[in-house]
Simulated scan of single mutants.
Amino acid sequence: MDKAAMTARIADGRGFIAALDQSGGSTPKALEGYGIAEGSWSTDEEMYALIHQMRARIITSPSFTGDKVVGAILFERTLDGQAAGKPVPHALHDRGVVPFLKIDKGLQPEADGVQLMKPIPGLGDLLDRARGLGVFGTKERSVVNLANKNGIDAIVRQQFEVAREVLAHGLVPIIEPEVNIKSPERGAADVLLRDGLHEALDGLTGDDQVMLKLSLPETPGLYDTLVDHPRVLHVVALSGGYHRAEACAELARNRGVIASFSRALLEDLHVDMGEDAFDRALSEAIEEIYQASVHKAVDPA
């Protein structure tokens, strides 16, 4: 797929984006959920090899195709690995799945109720390498814990600074300012974030478009105006700690938003499953998330 084909695929949004980008801090938990206990590896390299095997198994499973999975977000080490005997982005292209790359390096300590991204050294070189491998876009995550306007403004400002560099390298950024769904100020934080994103989107120039990856809002439909914004290619939602059934129920209440789930996608998969059982469990998860992404329990009026 060339960039125009990938853009059309994401804009159409008939499916969802699989988040296969667990990184250093979240990898042990992801492996534990897959049935590989912490202590089953001696070095980080062995740990990353195990998580790559899991991801490659998912990507090459018969049910993981562009019919219902329109995109997949990769960790940098997955970008450099192989699936089906070829670079992972190429394997995704073969299945009609648009590849994205997680580029952030984790979070800074909390200040003003938020956690900004750590600096991203060598970002330009990474973006060039990703584009050369056929990657369409990037994802960069920060976290909102409280409804602090100064903190949320700082997150939006930082996210769009990175986004502009991504756009300059010919890639499409997924901006991910995650609102903690356990925050005691969640609803107010959702509103402040929505308003800050609107202002930043209005400041984009030329024909630039971005994507937004947001927590499912406390008030369904709160992000409708972001869904409709001409600078937004698509809005996707993270599961944010919800189990799949609950995440899908919340997703279905938000018009125009498709999933970008990680744990909610993988929660029934286990390392000891045979290939048929593994693909059956993955297929059931894909179907449930697909239905919530494209068929909405929302009054069209």
Rank of each mutant, 00 (worst) to 15 (best):
L201P: 02
T225S: 15
D153Q: 13
G196R: 08
V156L: 07
A168P: 03
V232G: 00
H198D: 13
L193D: 06
L212R: 03
V227Y: 12
E161M: 11
A147H: 11
I174W: 08
R194S: 11
V179P: 12
A189H: 00
T219R: 13
R194E: 09
E165A: 11
D224C: 07
V210I: 11
R141I: 15
S183D: 15
A154V: 11
G196S: 05
E176Q: 09
E185N: 14
K139L: 07
M211P: 14
A188K: 12
L192V: 03
Q159P: 05
D228V: 05
L167A: 07
E161Q: 10
G187M: 05
A163Y: 10
E176P: 09
I155S: 03
E165L: 13
I152N: 14
V156C: 06
D228E: 15
N150E: 13
S215Q: 13
N150H: 14
K139E: 04
D207Y: 03
V143L: 15
K139M: 08
G151H: 08
G203M: 04
H234T: 15
S215K: 01
I181E: 00
E165P: 00
T225K: 13
R164G: 01
E185G: 13
L146W: 12
N148V: 02
Q158I: 06
V191I: 14
A168N: 10
D208Y: 00
A154T: 07
V232P: 04
D195T: 09
V156F: 01
E165V: 09
H198V: 10
E178N: 13
A189Q: 08
E140R: 11
V232A: 01
A200E: 11
A154Y: 03
V210N: 02
L212V: 11
H198K: 15
V232M: 05
V235A: 07
H229F: 13
E161G: 03
E178I: 07
N180S: 15
E218P: 01
E199I: 04
V235E: 04
D190F: 05
K182N: 14
L197N: 02
V191E: 12
T205M: 14
E199S: 06
N145S: 09
G196Q: 14
A189E: 06
E218C: 01
K213E: 09
S215N: 06
V236D: 07
K182G: 14
N145T: 13
L216M: 10
G151F: 00
G206V: 05
K182Y: 09
D190N: 15
I174H: 11
P217W: 07
T219I: 10
H198C: 02
V144R: 04
K213L: 05
T205Q: 15
E176L: 09
V210L: 04
K182W: 08
Q158H: 09
L214R: 06
